[in-house]
Write a protein that binds this DNA or RNA. Structure first.
Length: 439
RNA sequence: CGGGGAGUAGCUCAGCCUGGUAGAGCACCGUCUUCGGGAGGCGGGGGUCGGAGGUUCGAUUCCUCUCUCCCCGACCA
């Protein structure tokens, strides 16, 4: 993409409304614009990141055996009355009436709808287990939206729902998602730690929040240092195998958010040199809720013995749009964003320092064409701007690599390759630089 | 929802106290000089001063109501 033709309205100054760093940087980098409180428009650069995150989430859901569906944003109130949540949900749910005066709502979540879909089509234990997910916009009318896309009212969320015959089966589904989440966040370049979460009236130990560590996170978290060294992506996962040992390994060590933190236990279970106290952001939540919805909504299947039982369900959420902000919170410096390669909107920012110089242009066009041929996502700054503005802009949007073509280097037959994270620069021949970026 | 703050140019903000018909920097357009880390000169365009009502000869400025946004707290992917 040529920057001269790209819609990327960057800001030199920080809009007054933005408090936290990810919000500031997303506005400044031209990724989003606020439409109203907690509701955002996604501009090209931001949308590219959102789509990349979405794709990784999708790939890992599929890999774990879940199947994608797409449910609507607008739902009828009837189902919610059946589950009892229409009244229970409160003002956080956006309620709408259609032209006929029917009560509708903008879905804050989809348990009711997916259960309805399931119950009308699945009648036998033979068709279990099933995991169905979708990635869809949700709306929760937060009293006080804040932190940009991290805590918006409208947000993109992946929610998966599992259906099993009994608790044992549900636990297997739960474990699949547990492992899937570890892989998902690792692929996004994040350190995520599963922390025991409140299971509410259901009880049991099948609820975890996945917290990523970021210095600007909204809550204090405490965990064992070994979490940070686990190699998640090292081995392929066999989702049909028994995942319990993996889950055990990840839940044995201490990891709690501040509201569950117990200093006495922390100090007893974790050696002093292994204690990690950091800030964290919740980006995922997995939850087993048994027959909470299948009973009122009558999602029943026949058992091998012929009796009808309510299915055991779980739900598994990942805040996809929140992750865009969360990645920035976890990865930035004073100059701007530092994208992990997996979610970067482009891999390379190609900077032509001097548009007016024929040799710079020739080299720039050549590299741009070759990178594109090689399938490398490249943003070519071909604007007639001063070098300082180009450097600052490229640092701000945080592409992993910057390739700088300037008269000074070309005289020596070299271009400059800079890694955004760390800032190391290297002078290379044009060919060597290309080989580096396409290799 | 309780408490606090803010709405003036695309962005950051001044002016309001003490009423007289709106400014700066950045951004934008033209031009000259510059050209390896958000340059400088000159010239220019751009504002229902959030909205409604009131007081006044006259309101961005004073009063009332209202809308929106932000921050702190209680709640959440």
């Amino acid at each position: 993409m040529r920057l001269s033709a790209y819609f990327m309205p960057t800001l030199k100054e920080t809009p007054a409304e933005a408090e936290i760093v990810s919000h500031r940087l997303m506005l400044r980098a031209g990724m989003v614009r606020q439409a109203s409180a907690g509701i955002y428009s996604w501009l090209p650069l931001g949308l590219r990141v959102l789509k990349k995150i979405e794709r990784i989430v999708r790939e890992e859901q599929d890999r774990a055996g879940a199947q994608e569906v797409l449910m609507p944003t607008i739902q009828s109130a009837d189902l919610w009355r059946q589950s009892g949540r229409y009244d229970a949900y409160g003002p956080e749910m956006l309620r709408i009436a259609d032209r006929h005066g029917r009560d509708m709502l903008y879905g804050p979540t989809n348990e009711e709808l997916i259960t309805e879909i399931f119950r009308t089509s699945v009648k036998s234990y033979r068709e279990l287990p099933r995991m169905l997910y979708h990635i869809q916009w949700k709306f929760r009318d937060e009293v006080r939206p804040r932190f940009g896309v991290m805590r918006g009212r409208e947000f993109l969320m992946k929610d998966n729902y599992s259906f099993d015959l009994d608790y044992e089966g549900a636990k297997k589904s739960y474990n699949k998602m547990f492992v899937s989440y570890l892989r998902t966040f690792a692929r996004l370049g994040l350190q995520a730690v599963p922390m025991a979460a409140d299971t509410g009236p259901i009880g049991g130990d099948l609820s975890h929040e996945f917290i990523i560590l970021a210095d600007t996170g909204e809550s204090e978290v405490f965990c064992h240092r070994d979490f940070l060294d686990f190699d998640v992506l090292g081995a392929e996962v066999d989702y049909e195998a028994d995942l319990e040992p993996v889950v055990q390994a990840w839940t044995r060590l201490y990891a709690r958010t501040d509201d569950k933190h117990d200093p006495a236990v922390f100090e007893r279970e974790v050696p002093a040199d292994k204690r990690v106290q950091r800030r964290g952001i919740e980006v995922g939540h997995i939850f087993y809720f048994g027959t909470k919805y299948s009973e009122p909504l009558k999602a029943q299947v026949a058992t091998p013995g012929g009796e009808s039982v309510a299915v055991h369900m779980g739900s598994y959420g990942i805040g996809v749009s929140r992750l865009v902000g969360a990645v920035i919170e976890a990865s930035h410096d004073k100059d701007g964003i530092i994208w992990p390669e997996a979610v970067a909107p482009f891999k390379v920012g190609l900077i032509n320092l001097k548009i007016a110089a024929p040799d710079c242009n020739k080299a720039g066009e050549e590299i741009y064409a070759k990178l594109q041929e090689a399938g490398v996502e490249v943003l070519y700054d071909d604007r007639d701007e001063r070098p300082g503005a180009k450097f600052a802009g490229m640092d701000l949007i945080g592409l992993p690599w910057q390739l700088v073509i300037g008269p000074r280097g070309l005289d020596k037959g070299v271009v400059e390759l800079k890694r955004r994270a760390g800032g190391e620069r290297e002078e290379l021949s044009l060919e060597a630089a290309l080989a580096r970026l396409t290799g």
